[in-house]
């Protein structure tokens, strides 16, 4: 085994893997992470602890991941290329490993201008780093783990043994280059892949056909991304404004109908939409898992971690495998 992480064990066992996501708070108090970890524990094999997602300052991924670990939830720490140069990245990787972390997802990170899509002030005037890009970051983790060498060539007494992850946007542009994007990340050393949210199953299926033809599904474990819809408005927003995500009209209409059914009752409107959203998520999980070459799902219930239990159970993915 490369890292010995629970996620790696589940994937090796041949069971469909389930990862979830936990967003750390804009607060110096870690109790929210403990609370969210309790909601996710037992219902996923590992949970991503996001690294200042949407370019907003939050408890760091590494610190959040250690708190999750203390609560018995296996974390996937995230490392963006936005905020650290290769010196800081490698120092943090050594520290993270020393603290017991074993999974790391390498991502470019939202540009600092994003600032939660303008909902928060963020730090649009920040200087970014991008010393290395995602492929290069994956390569650095692999070199550290497999060769015991830093990127610059110095030896590591004890190499960090991470299960290396990368993201993939199957529906991103240019569509015909996206399989190449994935291949490069896998060539660089990615062990597992978490995809951007999938709503348009046809696009995903056709991209996976190319992935299988290239044999990539056998070289890394691809976990299809599921972003649990919560409102009709959210689905519309995802469709119009989130790069690489397109939402079929039929799904938006289903959510809109759920809202209409509640009439003027706002509480019910929320309840009905959430019910429908969970149903949609479960259907998508089945469709993604039925796609040949897929090894699991990455379920994101953004700021709605309490939904994971129901989704995982309804999808027939509970209980999660346990290893000694």
């Amino acid at each position: 085994m490369k890292s010995g992480s629970n996620l790696e064990r589940v994937i090796l066992s041949g069971n469909p893997a389930v990862t979830a996501e936990l967003g750390p708070p804009m607060s110096a108090d870690g109790s929210e992470i403990r609370h969210k970890a309790k909601l996710l524990k037992g219902f996923c094999d590992a949970a991503n602890i996001t690294d200042c997602q949407t370019a907003v300052v939050r408890i760091s991924s590494i610190a959040g991941a250690v708190i999750a670990l203390q609560e018995g939830l296996e974390p996937v720490m995230q490392m963006t290329c936005r905020d650290r140069n290769r010196i800081a990245i490698q120092a943090d990787l050594l520290g993270a490993h020393a603290l017991g972390l074993r999974n790391c997802l390498c991502i470019a990170g939202d540009h600092q201008k994003f600032s939660a899509a303008g909902k928060l002030k963020g730090h649009p005037g920040a200087k970014n780093v991008y010393d290395v890009d995602t492929c290069q970051l994956v390569g650095i983790l692999k070199k550290m783990r497999d060769e015991g060498l830093q990127q610059g060539g110095d030896k590591l007494e004890v190499p960090p043994r991470f299960f290396i992850g990368a993201s993939w946007t199957p529906g991103g542009e240019p569509l015909d280059f996206r399989p190449v994007n994935l291949k490069k990340k896998i060539d660089a050393g990615a062990d597992f892949i978490q995809t951007q949210g999938i709503y348009d199953i046809d696009i995903f299926r056709s991209q996976m056909e190319k992935i299988r033809a290239m044999g990539l599904h056998e070289r890394a474990a691809i976990l299809g991304g599921i972003i649990v819809p919560r409102t009709a408005m959210m689905l519309k927003y995802m469709d119009s404004s989130v790069a690489g995500v397109s939402v079929p009209k039929s799904l938006i209409e289903r959510m809109a109908k759920a809202k209409e059914r509640a009439g003027d009752d706002k509480k019910k409107a929320k309840e009905y939409q959430e019910e429908e959203g969970i149903k949609i998520a479960v259907e998508l999980i089945h469709q993604v898992l039925e796609t040949p070459g897929v090894k699991g799902v990455h379920i994101q219930a953004i700021e709605w971690e309490s939904a994971i239990e129901k989704i995982v159970k309804s999808a027939g993915l509970y209980p999660r495998p346990v290893f000694e």
């Binding site: 470019a108 540009h111 991008y130 492929c135 946007t169 240019p174 280059f177 790069a243 690489g244």
Partner: peptide
């Protein structure tokens, strides 16, 4: 915007930058 060397990030939308 990210000086990437190995291909587009996930933020490409209709040929434009995130």
């Amino acid at each position: 915007s990210k000086s990437l060397m190995n291909g587009p990030c996930g933020g490409t939308d209709k040929g434009k930058c995130e």
